[in-house]
Design a protein around this nucleic acid. Structure first.
Length: 922
RNA sequence: GCCCGGGUGGCGGAAUUGGUAGACGCAGCAGACUCAAAAUCUGCCAUUCGCAAGGAUGUGCUGGUUCGAUUCCAGUCCCGGGCACCA
């Protein structure tokens, strides 16, 4: 009786289905545990071996926690709105709902074969109206809330209107830019539109103008992804940045709480670091520079973290989009400025930030006046200053900032050195440790100390004030697209009106054509019968991908509730996600957005916790390992990699699935594509050897490996363990199918501990020896520790070691094998169930008790110590573990190898680290 | 360009966080079983010098700290991820 994995896996998958083994209740005596995967976007390409890496890891952990006695919530769903489906619709005319549903079916089938313990009764799909009803509902909460800075939390807008009515603009506690101060009476007398415009400046979800990538030729707004070198990916048409009305989430109000919240969660330090950098909190000063020859009140505001360098300012740079550019530009410079503005319009933000080789800019002709020194300095515009950062203007200090320095050199602007010998004349020095020179009242001060001193002076003189700045900007929340959640908003006379929550969901209407609407609006703008609602017009943008994914973890808790997005009692029971597993590519975007939504929900009393994910585990990417064949130019002859340099060849991707390691299956290659049917091969040593390169796993590179194929060939248990065996979950690594045999052999070897090919049953029910118990308990300790630490690759090797040792010891005893199976269940659930049943157990192993470590089997009395001389290991000696240092020294010095190295000299020192090593220094 | 991560045998990786570098597996080589093959089992397997015993070198590169560094520090090169409309 051999290991029939296909039969076994089908049998148990059916059993789990029939017994609803993975269905989880919201009421349970046991402590709860919530294990969550980042749900996938169901792409048309189906699942490849990279996807399940994190899913297997979380599945192992979820199963482990269940064995440890927890009520484990482990759901899965689909992030099913998104650009690719819409793009596919444009190309093929098929409705995204149809293709998405098909893709989900494919994903589901693939996932099912791997034997995950998901509770599929809780599946969510973000594109399902029953789901996005609640996304819209939450959007309305964001729209109808503002951030009360005094209270430090979001509140319903009614508290703001009440405050305005009783105290005017002071009632809010802060004035938004562009809103003039007003009294309570003013407020009451304002017309509806004025009031609404003011409220819009406070709403957590708000609409204003923002820049998009506009492609005139395609008549559409493009994603950054669709723009390559300033041209559209499709068609290569020019792309410029254009202002359009957009929706935003006021995430900046949460900047501090998003920072503070990081202290309460278990994310890796680099992950926290990335989020902190994204938020980019800095302390500094905002100050105003007057402009020579301009009316009083025309000032340029700059934000700087280094007010100590104020006397080193040699010029100012405005963002080309800065509102004062037109006003300041002198007649003589107008033509040059206009030309430069045309250039900048074609540059993406990314290009503008990363440009270092080529310095560009243009002089406006105007001069600003340094408020402290009175010096006049030229005002330039340059692409490296972005309108959205700080005030959109900087004071340039060439001796302290390299970009300013390059700019000054390039345009021959004289550089003032305020840091004496710390500046070498060739490159900027951003030090804070120099003593200031040529700096007026700051002369002789250490720069560090001068920062605060300078700000005090700015405040005293009324020129500027202390200011905390954030690099993070409010999050763009609208897309000029079809396949996303429609906004539950209509517009009337320029005022956004929220739909009544009772009318939700606002369903996405069917369209026939996915082309853009007029003026760059989304496809919905073409359906006038949908957009026209009496005197109102519906918002035609849709929400971005992260809308649905910002709160999905809550919906899993209560997925079928039609009265609430998630019942409060249920979210109180499940609480935070205990472990969240997903890729680092989501390190910032998705995590910050869902953290913000959670905080808003918390502030509004919808849930009882304000951080969604207690612990985050990052999974590395699985890269593709591409294989290449070399076609001799203008022939149908292919030459093996080792001989390719003797010919002029073209490199062509070969499908990794027809290559064994690096050896091409030439017959399969001929059948792969009609054009290769009559291919001939120039071999080396009788083989065709392929070239190898690690690239992103992608269909177009023919380096994707479908898990179905591997599951079919080796079984789900082998596949699961092999994915884990590849290396640490959090590290990226190339996929290579070659090693999977080893894991499969391990499972067969395990099987042979129970059954022999010829003898049949070999397992026995007799008491185990201490030596056998030691093998087991060593394994218990290792597996439990590794599983807790998400070190699944070392756990798999520990299983291998254990089975090797049991085979060596000829141990087939139930006492040992039973607990071993329980340890193995999370990793290889099918074979464990089968063998558990073989051992005579009734019921599923899913609910077995996790083995308990018994230390008595692990006690050691002796250890083999490595003996080093000057740090180099020279020999090993067995030494009793309880021996004291003096005795150890005696033993070691008596050793002949040690004596040989000592050459009769006395040692200078002997380092003895109990249970580790001995080092003799001579 | 900026931020984050990673570089260890032919390959994936291990190393109790400063204490025997290369566990486990793949590939390879040699052998056993077999008519043969598959499966299985045994042995070898970083580089280099040496018949051997044994020695030297070795964790991207250059330095430093230490009795001792894959591990800590400084610098540097290469690769991957993110940079706000891919998800």
């Amino acid at each position: 009786m051999d290991y029939q994995f296909r039969t076994i896996e089908q049998k148990w998958q059916q059993y789990w289905k029939d017994h609803a083994s993975y269905q989880v209740s919201n009421q349970c005596e046991k402590p709860k545990f919530y294990v969550l995967d980042m749900f996938p976007y169901p792409s048309g390409a189906g699942l490849h071996v990279g996807h399940p890496l994190g899913y297997i890891a979380s599945d192992i952990y979820a199963r482990y926690k269940r064995l440890k006695g927890y009520n484990v919530l482990h759901p899965m769903g689909f992030d099913s709105f998104g650009l690719p489906a819409e793009q596919y619709a444009i190309e093929t005319g098929q409705h995204p709902a149809t293709t998405t549903a098909n893709n989900i079916t494919t994903f589901r089938n693939q996932l099912d074969k791997i034997g995950f313990c998901y509770d599929w009764s809780r599946e969510v799909r973000t594109s399902d109206p029953g789901y996005y009803k609640w996304t819209q509902w939450l959007f309305l909460h964001l729209f109808n809330s503002w951030y009360n800075r005094r209270a430090g939390k979001a509140e319903p807008l009614t508290t703001l209107t009440d405050a305005f009515a009783s105290a005017g603009s002071d009632g809010a506690g802060y004035l938004q830019p562009g809103i003039p101060p007003f009294t309570a009476t003013d407020w009451q007398q304002y017309d509806h539109k004025t009031q609404q415009d003011i409220l819009m400046a406070y709403r957590l979800a708000f609409s204003t103008y923002g820049e998009v990538n506009w492609c005139e030729a395609l008549g559409t707004v493009l994603a950054n992804d669709e723009v390559v070198n300033g041209l559209s990916e499709r068609g290569g048409h020019p792309v410029v940045r254009k202002k359009m009305r957009q929706w935003y989430l006021r995430i900046t109000e949460y900047a501090d709480r998003l920072l503070e919240g990081l202290e309460t969660v278990q994310f890796s330090e680099p992950m926290k670091e990335m989020q902190r950098n994204w938020i980019g909190k800095s302390q500094g000063a905002e100050m105003s520079f007057a402009v020579a020859g301009q009316p009083e009140g025309t000032t340029i505001k700059v934000y700087t973290t280094r007010p100590d360098t104020i006397f080193g300012v040699d010029f100012m740079v405005l963002a080309p989009e800065h509102e004062l550019v037109a006003q300041l530009t002198t007649a003589g410079q107008r033509a040059a400025i206009d030309e430069y503005l045309g250039y900048v319009e074609s540059r993406s933000e990314r290009e503008r930030m990363s440009e270092v080789k080529q310095v560009t800019g243009c002089f406006t002709g105007a001069y600003a006046i340094n408020p402290l020194s009175g010096r006049q300095i030229p005002i330039w515009i340059a692409e490296y200053v972005l309108a959205g950062y700080g005030t959109g203007a900087i004071m340039a200090v060439p001796c302290g900032d390299q970009r300013d320095h390059s700019f000054a050199e390039h345009f021959a602007i004289p550089i003032t050195n305020i840091i004496g010998s710390h500046y070498n004349g060739h490159e900027a020095n951003p030090t804070k440790d120099a003593i200031l020179e040529k700096s007026g009242f700051l002369n002789g001060m250490l720069m560090k100390d001068a920062i605060g001193f300078a700000i005090d002076r700015l405040e005293a003189d009324g020129i500027g004030q202390r200011k905390v700045n954030y690099r993070m900007r409010d999050a763009g929340f609208s897309r000029q697209r079809y396949w996303g959640e429609p906004f539950p908003i209509t517009w009337q006379d320029g005022v956004a009106v929220a739909m009544d929550a009772s009318a939700l969901p606002l369903e996405l209407p069917f369209v026939k054509n996915y082309g853009p609407g007029p003026e760059g609006e989304g496809p919905l703008a073409n359906i006038t019968e949908w957009t026209t609602q009496g005197s109102h017009r519906r918002e035609t943008s849709t929400m971005p991908g992260y809308a649905g994914s910002s709160w999905y973890f809550l919906r899993y808790m209560d997925p079928h509730n039609t009265n609430s997005f998630c019942d409060r009692a249920v979210s109180d029971y499940w609480g935070q996600v205990d472990v969240y597993i997903g890729g680092t590519e989501h390190a910032v975007g998705h995590l910050l957005y869902s953290r913000m939504w959670t905080k808003v929900c918390f502030d509004l009393g919808l849930i009882g916790f304000d951080e969604p994910f207690r612990k985050l585990v990052n999974q590395g990417m699985i890269q593709g390992s591409s294989r290449f064949v070399y076609r001799v130019r203008e022939t149908r002859q292919f030459v093996s990699a080792g001989l390719k340099d003797q010919y002029e060849t073209d490199r062509i991707h070969a499908d990794v699935n027809i290559v064994d390691g690096v050896e091409l299956d030439t017959a399969a290659f001929r059948q792969w594509k009609p054009e290769y049917a009559d291919a001939t091969f120039i071999l080396e040593d009788g083989k065709y050897i392929c070239g190898v390169e690690t690239e992103k796993m992608s269909k177009s590179k023919y380096n994707t490996v479908n898990p179905d194929v591997l599951v079919e060939k080796y079984g789900a248990d082998t596949f699961r363990m092999y994915e884990m065996f590849l290396g640490p979950v959090e590290m990226s690594k190339p996929w290579d199918t070659k090693g999977i045999e080893g894991v499969h052999r391990f499972l067969r070897k395990l099987w042979r501990l129970f059954f022999d090919e010829t003898k049949g049953r070999v397992w026995v029910d007799v008491p185990a020896t201490d030596a056998e118990q030691k093998i087991l308990h060593k394994t218990i300790r290792k597996i439990e520790g590794d599983t807790e630490n998400f070190s699944f690759n070392t756990a798999v090797s520990a299983f291998m070691v254990c089975v090797n040792e049991l085979a060596e010891a000829n141990c087939h005893k139930k006492d040992i094998l039973g607990p071993l199976l329980v340890l193995l269940t999370p990793y290889a659930p099918h074979i464990s169930e089968e063998l558990w049943q073989v051992l005579g157990n009734t019921g599923s192993i899913l609910d077995a008790a996790y083995p308990v470590l018994d230390e008595q089997y692990l006690a050691e009395t002796e250890k083999e110590y490595p003996i080093s001389v000057n740090g180099k290991v020279r020999t090993n000696i067995r030494i009793a573990t309880d021996l004291k240092q003096a005795d150890v020294e005696q033993v070691v010095l008596n050793n002949e190898v040690v004596q040989k190295w000592l050459e009769g000299k006395p040692p200078k020192r002997i380092v003895f680290v109990p249970n580790r090593m001995v080092n003799i220094v001579i």
